[in-house]
Nucleic acid binder design. Structure first.
Length: 321
DNA sequence: ACTCTGCTTCCAGACGTA
DNA sequence: TGAAGCAGAGT
DNA sequence: TACGTCC
C-alpha cells in the first residue's frame, strides 16, 4: 500500500517539504479524502468485543459511526471535505490484490481456529485482518453523505489518483490521507494526520510536492521512478535497493532505463518481466475524471432525512444536532 | 561503516465521563 | 497493514 | 489521561 518508506525518505532527505500545523489552519479549505480507505479503517478500528458495531437487524454500523463523526468534526473546523470512492482497480494491481485476498483467507482460518479455542485475543487480532469493504458499506456511506450535504466523487479507478487530480485542477486544496502515493500521482499537497491529531499527539503534517522535489534535487518524472524503486502497489522493486541507493541511482542516472543499463545485475536481481514503465504510465496518466465531469457542491444537511436514515433505519441514538 | 532485510511488537475511531 | 526498533547479513 | 461506550 502506498510507496514503501517514502515518508521516511522525505523526512530524512527533504525535511523542508514537511510543515507541521494544527487543524485551524485548514479553515475554509476544501480537502479530498479517500472514502474507501476511511471505511476500511473504521471497520478495523470501531469494534466492541471483537465485533463491529451493529444495529438490531444485525447490520454493521461501524463505518457510518466513523464517517459521521469524522465528517462533523471536519465541518465544525471549517473544512469542506469531498470523499472519493475507489472504482475498478487497474490491472497492474491484481498481483497486490491477490496477495491481500490470500492474507484475508489465511486470517479467516486463523479466526475460526481462535474461536474454537476460545482465544478472544487471537480472534480479535485475526478478525481485523479479514475486513473487506463491501458494496453495502459504500452505499451506506454515500447515502449518509448525501443527507449531510457533503459531495463525493466516484473515481474510475484509484481514489488516490482522483484525489490528486482534484488538487491539480485546483478544485481542492489538498488530499487528506495517510497514503503517500497521492504525491506520486502528482498532488501538490498531501496532509497526514488531519483528523486524529488532537486525540493522539500527532501533529498534522503537510507535504508539499514542489518542496519534496526541490529538497531531493529531482524533477517529477524522476520522482515517479524513485517511487517505483522504493516499492509501489503496481510492480516489484529491486532487492537490495532501498531508500539511499534508490535516490543515489536516480540522481546519477535520472531514470530507470538508464539505471538498468549501468547496474550490476549480478549484485541486484532485476524482477522478471519488470513492468516499471507501465507503473510509471499509471502514475503519470491515471484514469481520472476532470473538468465538468466533476461537480463539487456543499449543501446544507437534510436533517429530517438524516434522522430518518441514521436513527430510524440504522438504530443510532438521537444525540447529535 | 553503511544499507537493506527480516523479525518482533504495538496499533488501528471518536466520544464523554471520572 | 504499517511503522518503528532491532539484529544480522550483504555491499 | 485512562477507560468504557457507541450500535
Amino acid at each position: 500500500m502506498g510507496i514503501h518508506t517514502l515518508a521516511k525518505l522525505i523526512a530524512d532527505q527533504a525535511p523542508g517539504a514537511i510543515k507541521e500545523g494544527e487543524i485551524k489552519n485548514y479553515f475554509g479549505r476544501k480537502i479530498a479524502i479517500d472514502a474507501s480507505m476511511s471505511i476500511y479503517q473504521f471497520l478495523i478500528a470501531v469494534r466492541q468485543n471483537g465485533e463491529n458495531l451493529t444495529n438490531e437487524n444485525g447490520e454493521t454500523t461501524s463505518h457510518l459511526m466513523g464517517m459521521f463523526y469524522r465528517t462533523i468534526r471536519m465541518v465544525e473546523n471549517g473544512i469542506k471535505p469531498v470523499y472519493v470512492f475507489d472504482g475498478k482497480p487497474p490491472q497492474m494491481k491484481s498481483k497486490e490484490l491477490e496477495k491481500r485476498l490470500e492474507r484475508r483467507t489465511e486470517a479467516e482460518a486463523e479466526m475460526s481456529k481462535a474461536a474454537e479455542a476460545g482465544d478472544e485475543e487471537a480472534f480479535d487480532k485475526f478478525a481485523r485482518r479479514t475486513v473487506k469493504v463491501t458494496r453495502e458499506h459504500v452505499e451506506d456511506c454515500k447515502r449518509l453523505l448525501k443527507f449531510m450535504g457533503i459531495p463525493y466523487v466516484d473515481a474510475p479507478t484509484e481514489a488516490e489518483a482522483q484525489c490528486a487530480a482534484l488538487v491539480k485542477e485546483g478544485k481542492v486544496y489538498g488530499v487528506g490521507t495517510e497514503d503517500m502515493d497521492a504525491l506520486t500521482f502528482g498532488s501538490d499537497v498531501l496532509i497526514r494526520h488531519l483528523t486524529f491529531s488532537e486525540a493522539r499527539k500527532m501533529p498534522i503534517r503537510e507535504y508539499t510536492l514542489a518542496k519534496v522535489l526541490q529538497g531531493l534535487g529531482i524533477n517529477f518524472e524522476e520522482f515517479m521512478d524513485l517511487c517505483i524503486l522504493l516499492g509501489c502497489d503496481y510492480c516489484d522493486s529491486i532487492k537490495g535497493i532501498g531508500q539511499k541507493r534508490a535516490l543515489d541511482l536516480i540522481k546519477q542516472y535520472r531514470n530507470i532505463e538508464t539505471i538498468l543499463k549501468h547496474i550490476d545485475t549480478k549484485k541486484y536481481g532485476i524482477p522478471e518481466d519488470w513492468a516499471f514503465d507501465q507503473a510509471r504510465a499509471l502514475f503519470k496518466e491515471p484514469d481520472v475524471l476532470t473538468g465538468d465531469a466533476v461537480e463539487l457542491k456543499w449543501n446544507e444537511p437534510d436533517e429530517e432525512g438524516l434522522i430518518e436514515y441514521m436513527v430510524n433505519q440504522k438504530g443510532f441514538q438521537m444525540n447529535k444536532q
